[in-house]
Nucleic acid binder design. Structure first.
Length: 260
DNA sequence: ATGCCGTTTCGTAAACGA
């Protein structure tokens, strides 16, 4: 089973790229972020035509996450628990049954947190605290868990081409990195690092200042695997080619293959 | 560097992103 995460930066602006990618890569499950669409206006037909079931948690204009799956999506949960006042659509979770069992998958759009001297940064850190509590609770089951998404965290200096340029950025603050590391310490495995610990692996290149042409990238899109899921991991692919397509997202898909 | 670029909205400039 191949499980993908992709921040597509607007599903309506990206529908042609999304359908092309679904046809060419054909993941079993795709976790999308920044759909920037309400549920009612999500372009479902073009995706269903390719054989995918869809569950969305959208809102107008910003944020928004979705799950696409060739197999049915069961027990869909929208919103991250822990703050009923949080109106941002950043979390959706569902179970997909396989021939040998099941996997519980989440699509996560973790807050950016910039600038760090505004309320956006403590919102990010509080959101990560909520994620840690929920992620710990998920480990109580025997079902393999995949928490996939745009974490907006650069875990280590090797995850940036120019780490020195990110020292004042919310994505690279010690607190942001520590809370991501806390997820690892709970028992979750960064799928990419489990299969390849080399530097120069990036998933985001800014639209500005020729970042793609200069390969000035960062690795912020992660698939975090529970122990039961990590045991099944056989490979990870970063589908960089999509960044060179016409009208690209600034993020590229990351696909993990699990023997499920 | 208050910059660069791209998407979205009760739009045509401003908010947001990373």
């Amino acid at each position: 089973m191949r499980i993908a995460t992709w921040n597509i930066n607007g599903v309506k602006a990206r529908i042609d790229s999304l359908t092309r990618w679904l046809e060419e890569s054909a993941p079993d499950i795709a976790c999308l972020q920044e759909i920037k669409s309400q549920d009612e206006t999500f372009p479902a037909e073009a995706i269903e035509r390719l054989g995918y079931n869809i569950a969305t948690h959208g809102q107008k204009g910003f944020n928004g996450v979705a799950l696409l799956s060739k197999r049915p999506l069961e027990d869909v949960m929208r919103r991250l628990p822990g703050d009923d006042a949080d109106e941002h659509s950043r979390y959706i979770e569902a179970t997909v049954s396989t021939d040998t069992g099941a996997v519980r998958v989440a699509s996560i759009y973790l807050p950016n947190g910039n600038p760090i001297d505004t309320e956006k940064y403590p919102y990010k850190l509080a959101w990560m605290d909520r994620l840690l509590i929920h992620a710990e609770g998920l480990l109580a089951t025997d079902t393999p868990i995949v928490l996939a998404g745009d974490y907006n965290v650069i875990p280590l200096p090797d995850d940036a081409r120019h780490p020195d340029r990110w020292t004042d950025d919310a994505l690279f603050q010690p607190e942001s990195r520590a809370k991501h590391r806390a997820l690892v310490n709970l028992g979750y495995t960064d799928a990419q690092r489990a299969v390849d610990n080399s530097d120069g692996i990036y998933t985001f290149w800014d639209y500005q200042a020729g970042a793609w042409q200069k390969n000035n990238g960062i690795r912020i899109d992660h698939l975090m695997l529970s122990p039961q899921a990590a045991d099944r991991l056989t490979g990870v692919t970063v589908e960089k080619q999509t960044r060179g397509w016409t009208k690209p997202s600034d993020h590229v898909p990351v696909v993990a293959t699990l023997d499920l």
